[in-house]
Design a binder for these strands. Structure first.
Length: 278
DNA sequence: TTACAGGTCCGGA
DNA sequence: TCCGGACCTGTA
């Protein structure tokens, strides 16, 4: 078991920050995730983490995936102390990192997320992977499913998508998979594009509006200047920033601050009922 | 029963 | 450019 001491990271906070829907707590303090076709378990005790992979795989895949070369301490320290709301949000979400997840998975995930609730999003994605993903076995014997590529989704067709509880989003998923296969939506070009160009191309796709495009840019392309405004963030901005959020102060990485705010809003009920000890 | 979920599309003003 | 209604479906 590989052990690492890592700063500014908390698995529960990452799992509850709304950026990933497949990260699952297997036991107390042990989380499982699937990415790049691989299965990983991470255990956390304070700032010491154990990984169910080799040092080589950690360096090749997970170090980047967990965004470990970004110093979140600097980001948190840049928060204006005269901004009590953001200061508190960053304090409570101190262990959030932006995972560098796979672009295709983020496109489909956030297409499904629209006008939807988190438990149903998770359920739909789990079903999607179980139905159309590849069934694999990890080195420790765990069974897991990969996230299905565009080929698998088109092969399954609308008939299979209808069984996943996606509602009216099923046609968005299908047509996006088609667009990637046909080359209308080129993922490699999307990865090379800057934020504005990527956002423009994404919103041109049927079913992807501003908000979903921003989520894809932030979580699938690591354009951390993207600042998705959903119902939660919209409410936060109305209440705490009636004169507008000070984007100029945090130019280039607003998306990370948005995550602190989003996490805070999503989980404040849990904090209030003291189910999570801060 | 109605409202709400990490919205988008579409038609009309 | 802006606005309102429709939209799948599960949960409270």
């Amino acid at each position: 078991m590989l052990k690492k001491k890592l700063p500014d990271m908390d698995l529960m906070q990452i799992a509850r920050s709304g950026q990933c829907f497949r990260m699952e707590e297997k036991q107390e303090g042990i989380y499982a995730l699937v990415a790049f076709g691989k299965y990983l378990e991470i255990g956390q005790e304070g700032d010491v983490f154990s990984f169910s992979c080799s040092e080589q795989e950690f360096q090749e895949i997970w170090r980047n995936y967990l965004d470990l070369d970004t110093d979140y301490g600097i980001i948190k320290a840049s928060v204006d102390p005269g901004d009590p709301y953001l200061t508190e949000a960053a304090r409570l979400g101190w262990g959030i990192r932006i995972l560098r997840q796979e672009l295709w998975e983020m496109i489909i995930t956030f297409l499904i997320s629209q006008n939807n609730n988190i438990s149903r999003i998770r359920r739909s994605i789990e079903l999607l992977c179980r139905t159309l993903g590849e069934d694999r076995t990890a080195e420790n014997g765990r069974q897991y499913d990969t996230f299905p590529g565009p080929e698998a989704i088109v092969r399954g067709g609308m008939a299979v998508l209808k069984t996943l509880g996606l509602g009216y989003r099923d046609k968005y998923v299908y047509r996006t998979a088609q667009a990637v296969l046909e080359g209308t939506l080129n993922l490699e070009e999307l990865k090379r594009a800057d934020y504005e160009e990527a956002h423009r191309r994404l919103t041109a796709q049927y079913g992807i509006g501003r908000k979903v495009a921003d989520c894809i840019c932030l979580f699938g392309l690591y354009h951390i200047e993207a600042f998705p405004i959903d119902t939660h963030v919209k409410k936060i901005l109305e209440v705490h920033y009636p004169l507008g959020f000070p984007h100029d102060k945090y130019r280039g990485y607003g998306g990370i601050l948005q995550q602190y705010m989003f996490y805070n809003d999503l989980n404040e009920k849990l904090y209030r009922t003291a189910r999570i000890v801060v």
